[in-house]
Simulated scan of single mutants.
Amino acid sequence: MPHDLLLDDAAGLLRTLIVGPLAYAFLVAALRVSGKRTLAKLNAFDLVVTVALGSTLASVLTSENAAFAEAAVAFLTLIGLQWIVATASVRWRGFARTVRSDPTLLMRSGEICEDALRRERITRAELMTVIRTSDTNDPRNVAAVILESDGSFSVIPEPEGPGSADYPLPGAGARGT
């Protein structure tokens, strides 16, 4: 077996052993300073930043051409962009609508919102899978199924009786039906 299949050179290993912990520690520190929102995955941009941070870390660990300083600048750039987008979203409603999607009501009181399923490209079978894998696994016991902004599903059970909490549902009008 050729030597280079297992190891190009010891310098590459040493570089990874030194740069890896430095890049990891820097990323963790930068994320702690930037706050929880940086990894919240509340919208598509948050998800992109999370994936890009992981990709950047992987690149600095595996590429001999990526210096630690470049990785640090890349981390700070991604975190800074995420901070700018999150801040702008909080301050300007129009900007928020541009970078995030609203939750979509897929089912309400046992009625499937066919238009919403079509618009979100979700099949009835997928909706039933979501219900079956939830704590409320019977569609007859479901008050609502919501496709959240982050792509996750919320299954809200029917209230237990008088005085039960009434859940605010998104898209009770045009979006959900």
Results as ranks from 00 to 15, higher is better:
19 V>A: 02
64 E>N: 07
154 S>Q: 09
102 D>F: 15
28 V>W: 07
105 L>F: 15
116 A>Y: 15
120 E>P: 07
100 R>M: 08
47 L>A: 13
153 F>W: 04
8 D>I: 05
42 L>Y: 03
153 F>P: 00
145 V>A: 09
80 G>S: 10
38 T>K: 01
174 A>K: 10
37 R>H: 12
95 F>Q: 08
39 L>G: 02
70 E>W: 10
76 L>F: 14
12 G>D: 01
75 F>S: 03
26 F>R: 01
140 R>Y: 05
91 R>C: 08
152 S>Q: 12
165 A>C: 03
133 T>M: 11
168 P>V: 15
119 R>K: 15
14 L>S: 10
162 P>H: 11
110 G>I: 10
165 A>W: 14
84 I>R: 09
117 L>A: 12
45 F>W: 15
152 S>G: 07
153 F>H: 10
114 E>L: 15
98 T>F: 15
100 R>E: 10
115 D>T: 14
6 L>I: 05
19 V>Q: 00
167 Y>W: 11
84 I>S: 04
58 A>Y: 02
24 Y>T: 11
41 K>V: 05
28 V>F: 13
105 L>D: 00
123 T>I: 07
177 T>Q: 09
121 R>G: 00
12 G>L: 03
12 G>K: 00
69 A>I: 06
161 G>Y: 03
97 R>F: 09
147 L>C: 09
78 L>Y: 13
115 D>S: 12
141 N>P: 01
144 A>D: 01
133 T>N: 12
134 S>F: 15
104 T>N: 08
19 V>P: 00
6 L>S: 04
2 P>N: 08
162 P>F: 14
160 E>G: 11
11 A>D: 03
94 G>W: 13
50 T>R: 06
113 C>E: 10
101 S>I: 06
91 R>K: 13
63 S>D: 02
51 V>F: 15
2 P>Y: 07
120 E>L: 06
127 L>P: 02
27 L>P: 01
142 V>M: 05
136 T>M: 11
142 V>K: 08
34 S>I: 05
103 P>R: 10
109 S>N: 14
2 P>A: 05
110 G>C: 02
162 P>K: 09
88 A>N: 04
79 I>H: 02
97 R>S: 14
30 A>K: 01
164 S>D: 13
100 R>G: 14
55 S>D: 05
173 G>Q: 04
159 P>W: 07
142 V>L: 11
147 L>Y: 08
145 V>R: 14
22 L>R: 01
140 R>S: 10
122 I>D: 12
135 D>K: 15
171 G>F: 08
53 L>T: 05
129 T>D: 02
91 R>L: 11
9 D>Q: 06
18 I>Y: 01
66 A>N: 01
47 L>C: 06
94 G>V: 08
63 S>K: 08
119 R>Y: 07
98 T>D: 02
130 V>M: 11
137 N>T: 10
162 P>E: 12
79 I>T: 03
162 P>D: 11
175 R>V: 08
24 Y>G: 02
73 V>E: 04
104 T>Q: 13
88 A>G: 13
146 I>A: 11
73 V>R: 12
28 V>G: 03
75 F>C: 03
163 G>L: 06
11 A>P: 00
69 A>T: 11
133 T>S: 12
143 A>H: 12
44 A>T: 14
62 T>D: 00
35 G>A: 11
154 S>P: 04
95 F>S: 03
47 L>R: 13
146 I>G: 07
39 L>V: 13
34 S>R: 03
